[in-house]
Design a protein around this nucleic acid. Structure first.
Length: 671
RNA sequence: GCGCCCGUAGCUCAGCUGGAUAGAGCAUCGCACUUCUAAUGCGACGGUCGCAGGUUCGAAUCCUGCCGGGCGUGCCA
């Protein structure tokens, strides 16, 4: 049931008599700004009155007269400058709740225009440990996939793994020089991970050492610049002729110069920390002395792999499955799956063909030895082949697009990727036309950066990123502290065993992390604050999960009391629409919230913004909490009150559970 | 330099294609547990929506300029 759509249709019909653009004005239906105005409102009459030169209130009165809406709403009211306020009829609400009760999709319709949609998300570099940065693409992509699928689209999820890049050069180099084949064979996943870390640490160390002189130069430069700015600011300050504005400006630029110093100093500190980590470890510094230029050597190993070197190719084939096991462990835990995992390596053989094709179309230009495509409206070209002959991610993306076009025959592709790559996608999308693929709608579903609690990128002291797995563990551990709070545990009957506690902690911990991500608008940066997301109060997944648990608890109690086996089934079969009577304000408010489920889903899909669904679920759970507090279910002798409330509890539970499922978040029957 | 994004309550953030006194959570301060789980509910406090113009009957929302912050910017992805 989509109320906005339904109301829009009725307005559309009435508007045809008043204007030749009924679509535009019918669309101006909104949820009422304030509950005292009613449930919905139309804002159409002000602009319409303006356009036709009539008074908006007169237009509104006319519109109301020709509006056929009495089966849905009470008599519409014209208010203020020309708003039309609508209040839904209680019988209509009751009927709709009854329909939702008997529908396993809780009233959410299936789209009449199903599309084939490829969703490209997560796409980490295997072999490299996953960090917080990967969580957004994975969680947002998964939620979109679930939601699009639920409304009836044919969704194909594809994890475009980075399985062909430098990180394999790192592992191969590490294996050849520091690895013990027997140890790796016995325990490949952790061994390969530790070889990666070791080799990468040497690379970072050597790069850090090389970069230190430049950083010192930068610091000196920043310092002298700051000195000049400070002196200039001081001069302006003393200058009687200078305006306040000029003084302020000078102060600002002096402060800004000071900040640049701090920024360089912090770079130097983390660089020095990286160096110290190795220098303070005799084993590591010996290794570094032994292996002179690891960064260059690693690039050579990567190049050999790409050129088809037999040994490296064999190692790659041997290691790849283990690297996949490593990331799959995280996916299992997050409950994320993919229909396809076609990584970069899958497209490797197709890359020369892409360049040839673009050559054939006359789109390429050689510039400084690199093969480039210059596009209108962009300063820099898209480089598809490097001077040394190697291909780039632009090339791979084009090959991937061709494949999806030919094999999947999709209508739309969503790229759930960091917003920092937006320029790349603009160029890439601009090439779809010339390549004859402009019948696919290409969307960059971009998202912002995950920051630490302090608003700065999350990094350890030496500047490396914090592992994703440890964050998950942390969230679950904290969830367990709360779930297993002895005070709460004491109230549980039957008692909650260790297994159940662990299971709930996992569901609550994962939900906390996912919800924290999804509830922010995807394009804004957000602060990853474990304390807050696992606080388990306010706008968190736990609040919804708790609401759900309470619905189930009530249903269990009623089932016990009335000796009913399957209470949900009983309610579905025994509560009729005319027995649902919304007498209490909290009942009515909850009913409306529940009915808006489909609207919320459509909002989330329309702009690829799961936070809209989060907002909706939080509102609904709040309505449920208020209802739960004001309207007791148990102990009602009046069958109408009992049945009304049971119906609301059942539908509320199902809406919350389904809504959370679309977000990739689970529920527990009690907690 | 150029391009993109952002600036809303003490803090973290919503605010859909312009619409009625700008919302939520946290924090702070009250009230409510013999009552289906108080991981709760009810209430209070709290904002020149960065600044200045413009468009409009109406602007947090659209346009321009400025200030402040972030990111990107030809051979990494």
């Amino acid at each position: 049931m989509n109320l906005s759509v339904l109301l829009r249709k009725r307005f559309h019909a009435a508007l045809t008599e008043l204007t030749d653009q009924p679509d535009e004005y019918a669309g101006m239906i909104r949820v009422a700004a304030d509950a005292k105005f009613g449930d919905y409102q139309s804002n159409a009459c002000m602009p319409l009155g303006k356009k036709t030169g009539q008074s908006p209130r007169d237009v509104a009165t006319k519109l109301v007269e020709s509006l056929k809406i009495e089966d849905l709403c009470q008599t519409p009211e014209v208010a203020g400058p020309g708003f039309i306020n609508l209040k839904l009829r209680d019988e209509f609400l009751s009927n709709t709740i009854a329909d939702m009760l008997g529908d396993d999709r809780v009233g959410v319709g299936v789209t009449p225009n199903p599309e084939k949609i490829v969703i490209d998300y997560s796409s980490p570099n295997v072999a490299k440990p996953m960090h917080v940065g990967h969580i957004r693409s994975t969680v947002i992509g998964n939620a979109l996939a679930e939601t699009f699928r639920f409304v009836g689209h044919h969704v194909i999820t594809d994890n475009h793994l980075g399985d062909w890049g430098t990180q394999f050069g790192i592992i191969i180099y590490g294996y050849k020089h520091f690895g013990d084949p027997d140890v790796v064979a016995a325990n490949p996943v952790p061994e390969l991970a530790s070889l990666y870390r070791l080799t990468n640490q040497l690379i970072e160390y050597q790069k850090a050492k090389a970069s230190l002189p430049k950083l010192s130069e930068k610091l000196a430069e920043a310092e002298s610049n700051a000195k000049e700015e400070a002196a200039a600011a001081e001069a302006v300050e003393k200058d009687e002729k200078a305006s306040n504005k000029e003084k302020k400006k000078a102060r600002k630029s002096a402060e800004s110069a000071q900040r640049r110093i701090e920024s360089v100093q912090s770079d130097i500190a983390s660089t020095q920390a990286k160096i110290a980590d190795v220098d303070n470890d005799p084993k590591l510094s010996a290794l570094s002395a032994e292996h002179e230029d690891v960064p260059a050597a690693v690039l050579r190993e990567t190049a050999k792999l790409h050129e088809g070197d037999a040994e490296n190719r064999e190692l790659w084939e041997k290691f790849l499955p283990h690297c996949k096991d490593e990331i799959n462990r995280i996916y299992d835990r997050l409950g994320v799956t993919f229909d396809h995992t076609l990584g970069e390596s899958f497209y490797h053989d197709r890359l020369p063909g892409v360049v040839e094709m673009l050559d054939g179309l006359g789109l390429t230009t050689k510039s400084d030895g690199a093969v480039c495509v210059f596009l209108d409206g962009f300063d820099s070209p898209m480089i598809i082949q490097k001077r040394d002959g190697a291909y780039l991610y632009a090339t791979t993306d084009l090959a991937t697009l061709q494949y999806r076009h030919e094999v999947f025959e999709c209508d739309r592709i969503l790229y759930v990727v960091d917003s920092r790559q937006s320029e790349h996608f603009e160029k890439f999308f601009a090439m779809a036309g010339p390549l004859g693929m402009d019948n696919i709608e290409l969307v960059h579903v971009s998202f912002g950066t995950v920051l630490g609690k302090d608003g700065r990128p999350m990094k350890t002291r030496s500047g490396s990123l914090i592992g994703l797995e440890s964050l998950l563990d942390d969230a679950v551990a904290r969830a367990k502290d709360v779930v297993c709070n002895p005070e709460r545990l004491a109230n549980m009957s039957p008692p909650m065993g260790e297994d159940e506690q662990n299971q709930i902690a996992e569901v609550v911990g994962m939900g906390a992390i996912k919800y924290a991500d999804l509830s922010h608008h995807r394009t804004s940066d957000y602060r990853f604050d474990v304390d807050k997301m696992v606080a388990l109060e306010g706008n968190t997944a736990t609040y919804m999960q708790y609401s759900y648990a309470r619905t189930q608890s009530i249903l269990r109690r009623v089932a016990e009391e009335q000796n009913i086996d399957d209470i949900e089934d009983w309610v579905i079969k025994n509560v009729t629409a005319d027995e649902i009577q919304l007498r209490e304000p909290a009942e009515r408010a909850l009913a409306i919230a529940l009915i808006r489920f489909e609207e919320a889903i459509e909002g989330a899909i329309g702009a690829y913004t799961p936070n809209q669904l989060c907002d909706y679920l939080f509102d609904t759970a709040k309505s449920y909490s208020t209802f739960n507090d004001a309207c007791r279910v148990l102990g009602n002798t009046d069958p109408v009150i009992l049945k009304t409330r049971l119906a609301l509890v059942v539908v509320a539970g199902r809406v919350i559970k389904q809504g959370l499922r679309l977000l990739g978040i689970g529920v527990c029957d009690r907690m």
